[in-house]
Design a protein around this nucleic acid. Structure first.
Length: 414
RNA sequence: GUGGCUAUGGUGAAGCGGUCAACACUUACGACUGUGACUCGUACAUACGAGGGUUCGAAUCCCUCUAGCCACCCCA
């Protein structure tokens, strides 16, 4: 039996990689337009980084990390998300000292030991962005408009933006106990999971999909009614900025986050087209994270999107480039000439194809058609002799005669 | 970690105990020894996820394992 890939780790084959390029290029374009720069961080970090940032009691840290001890005895982990590494780098290189406002984006593989299913894999890919150093809700709004801008850029309007505020360490505990008090009276109708969550993560009950739980939480107190003055004001401004920028959104006061470091604004870009994985992108504000990791007390906000999930939403169209010209050759001498021409053209930015193995003219033309070449040209003894050839436009069959020089061909193809 | 479903060639798939494992696509070559798309012809699974078993005989029945998918959990 031949060796196969590890469960949940996928190959991105040529037919699909063009779609990935399309997504990645759009993200870079949009993010840089908003002043963000790429940061590249290792895929491996000391395990402690994730325990301290994501939270010891979260599912990710408790049971989903790929952790091991390396040969030097260091406890390392394949990153399950990107924010922790980026913040670690920010602190380590004191990026905040050069510019109090850091705007960074990253992309690459993440690893989580989960049972694979639609839109969820063990090695998956995220594109994320982080902005640190700004308390003002304008930062939140900027991150959100950029995220929405990205989805517009790639031509997707189905995903909807949902926002919420989770409060801060000052007001969240109070809300949490208010919620628990409310739910205590209804433990009979809550599902088993939710009864368990009552202690571990009561906010999560609001997001349960079991009909009984949805019913029993109908009149539950909303976080938004229990925000402290500061958080309420902040959230109000975020909403105002979204309205000013004409960014469509809805408030979902039941949205919760799986990572511990979020404060105040949280958001998700959701879709109903991905089976049970509704979140295409998600993020929020993390004002305490940087100091928690040993850095200065500066705020931050960011998001990550799942590339696989975005790719799933994109139509099955082909994003790969089509050849500009296919050169069919009749013999060995002609192949020599075509080969020289092909390299000259490629060097000047033209996508040219030719046959490599002396196939029949018919096969060569079939291949030109299959590759979707815009033009084809047949090069034989007569063409070499005269230095001119007939170029055929493949979509309508029309022809045009032109000299066989890289310079002239480039003009013709333009 | 739990549950359900499925496993036939490069792909999508017929086949439901008995001649050489349909058909379609893809690929290769050809139908005028210099021109594609349509059409036509020819070729392409010592093989039915792996290993056992039942049977005169199994891709077809039984068992085990493995893998994939989807869902739960959780999440991007």
């Amino acid at each position: 039996m031949a060796i196969t890939a590890i469960k949940g780790c996928n190959d991105i084959l040529p037919g699909e990689s063009s779609r990935w390029h399309y997504i990645e290029a759009a993200a870079r374009r949009v993010f840089e337009r908003y002043g963000f720069s790429e940061i590249r961080v290792p895929v491996m970090e000391k395990t402690e980084l994730f325990c301290r940032s994501i939270g010891d009691a979260t599912d990710i840290v408790e049971k989903e990390m790929y952790s091991f001890t390396d040969r030097g005895g260091t406890n390392v982990t394949l990153r399950p998300e990107g924010t922790a590494s980026v913040m670690r780098a920010l602190i380590e290189h004191k990026l905040y000292a050069q510019d109090p406002v850091a705007r960074l984006y990253y992309l690459g593989p993440m690893f989580r030991y989960e049972r694979p299913q639609k839109g969820r894999y063990r090695q998956f890919h995220q594109i994320g962005a982080e902005m640190t150093g700004v308390h003002d809700p304008l930062a939140d709004a900027q991150i959100l408009t950029m995220l929405v801008g990205f989805f517009r850029e790639i031509g997707l309007d189905e995903p909807r933006l949902e926002v919420n505020s989770l409060g801060c360490p000052d007001c969240r505990p109070a809300y949490r106990s208010t919620l628990v008090d409310f739910l205590r009276h209804r433990t009979g109708v809550l599902c088993d999971d939710c009864c368990r969550r009552l202690d571990s993560n009561p906010l999560r009950i609001l997001d349960c999909k079991v009909p009984g739980c949805i019913e029993s939480t109908r009149g539950a107190p909303s976080v938004l009614d229990h925000l402290c003055a500061g958080c309420a004001d902040h959230f109000g401004h975020v909403r105002r900025y979204l309205e000013i920028s004409a960014t469509p959104y809805s408030v979902n006061c039941r949205m919760v986050r799986g990572l511990d470091y979020y404060t105040r604004t949280t958001f998700e870009v959701v879709t109903s087209l991905l089976g049970s994985q509704s979140a295409v992108a998600a993020g929020g504000r993390y004002d305490g994270l940087i100091s928690q990791l040993g850095g200065p007390s500066i705020p931050g906000i960011g998001f990550a999107m799942g590339v696989e999930r975005v790719a799933l939403l994109l139509k099955e169209q082909d994003y790969s480039s089509r050849p500009d010209l296919f050169m069919a050759t009749m013999g060995a001498c002609e192949r020599d000439a075509a080969f020289r021409l092909m390299n000259e053209l490629a060097a000047s930015g033209v996508h040219v194809e030719m046959d490599y193995e002396g196939k029949s003219l018919k096969s060569q033309m079939r291949r030109a058609d299959k590759l979707g070449a815009r033009f084809s040209v047949v090069i034989g003894a007569a063409e070499l002799e005269s230095g001119h050839a007939i170029f055929k436009r493949m979509d309508d069959g029309s022809t045009i005669e032109a000299p066989l020089s890289a310079e002239r061909i480039r003009l013709l193809l333009r």
